[in-house]
């Protein structure tokens, strides 16, 4: 058995800087040859205590077995440690990936929030335009009604004065005719009202906008939910408690002697003290000073 080789296999090299980083400024050093000599001396002492060759052989065999067992355990511990380190590294990588995804989500969310603001502003402008068009249509409708009424009155007055025209009535008819002409001219000069065409367009656009906003919101929620699941946080509602009663609906019947045997019973110390104390605490009463003192959550 080569002790130096085994020490080489089962040891690891490190630097002074790494030791310093672990807070170790001084270390004790032992030569591998010295270890080998110590082991040899110890083995010789032990062997010398064996009284018979059989004892000696048994001792050697046992020592070998124990040594190899220890070696095997150390190997398995080392493997477990390496596996743990590997898993830790994987976990770290996953953490970095998650952090990156969170950052991306934040950025995406920022961009989308800005776009939502822009679209809301456009929607608000469209609403203003629709309102203005509606007001214009109402005003023109009122003016047309007034013009029609004036025209009717003018015709009635003209037919009334046909029989006996006078200078006053002629003047009034001229004024009315002028007024009617002015109103007609204004109506003809006004461009066709945009409202009837704009309003449905604005409504369709606002609906499209609402749909897009909903889709956007759902997308963000879905992504956050997906991300949350990966880190064990989810808005999912817990399912109802699972019932396993059906497993016990059908009772197997066994031939047994259980009914003829009693289980041994033992008497234990009572729980009355605990019950009384708990009831008092629930009622808010306390007879003795609190052993634990007050506590608060971190």
């Amino acid at each position: 058995m080569n002790v130096r080789e085994i020490l080489q296999t089962h040891s690891q090299s490190t630097t002074l800087r790494e030791l310093e980083a672990k807070g170790r400024s001084r270390v004790r050093v032992i030569n591998a040859n010295q270890i080998a000599e110590l082991i040899e001396a110890s083995v010789r002492r032990t062997l010398a205590q064996a009284e018979t060759p059989d004892d000696l052989r048994a001792l050697v065999e046992r020592s070998k077995a124990e040594f190899f067992e220890m070696q095997r355990q150390r190997d398995s511990e080392r493997k477990a440690r390496e596996e743990g380190l590997r898993q830790l590294e994987e976990a770290k990588d996953e953490l970095v990936a998650l952090a990156t995804e969170v950052e991306k989500l934040r950025e995406t969310e920022g961009t989308k929030t800005a776009r939502i603001g822009e679209l809301e502003h456009q929607l608000s402008c469209e609403k203003g335009r629709v309102e203005e068009a509606r007001r214009l249509v109402e005003m023109l409708t009122r003016e047309r009604d007034v013009a029609r009424q004036a025209e009717q009155e003018a015709r009635a007055a003209a037919s009334a004065v046909k029989a006996a025209p006078s200078p006053e009535s002629t003047e009034m008819l001229s004024r009315l005719a002028a007024e009617v002409a002015r109103l007609n001219e204004r109506m003809n000069a006004t461009p066709p009202p945009p409202a009837p065409a704009t309003a449905p367009a604005a409504t369709a656009e606002s609906q499209a906008l609402a749909t897009r906003l909903d889709a956007l919101s759902q997308g963000i929620a879905d992504r956050l939910e997906k991300f949350g699941r990966t880190i064990g946080v989810s808005s999912a509602v817990d399912a109802q408690e699972v019932k396993y009663d059906a497993l016990f609906n059908k009772q197997d019947s066994f031939e047994s002697n259980l009914n003829t045997l009693e289980v041994k019973e033992r008497q234990g110390s009572g729980i009355r003290g605990a019950l009384d104390r708990m009831k008092r605490m629930r009622l808010g009463g306390k007879e003795e000073p609190d052993a634990a003192g007050d506590a608060e959550k971190k």
Partner: peptide
């Protein structure tokens, strides 16, 4: 299994 007796003690069965 444990049950409470009226005298304040408890009876314990173990298997």
């Amino acid at each position: 299994a444990a049950v409470q007796n009226t005298d304040g003690s408890i009876t314990v069965k173990l298997e």
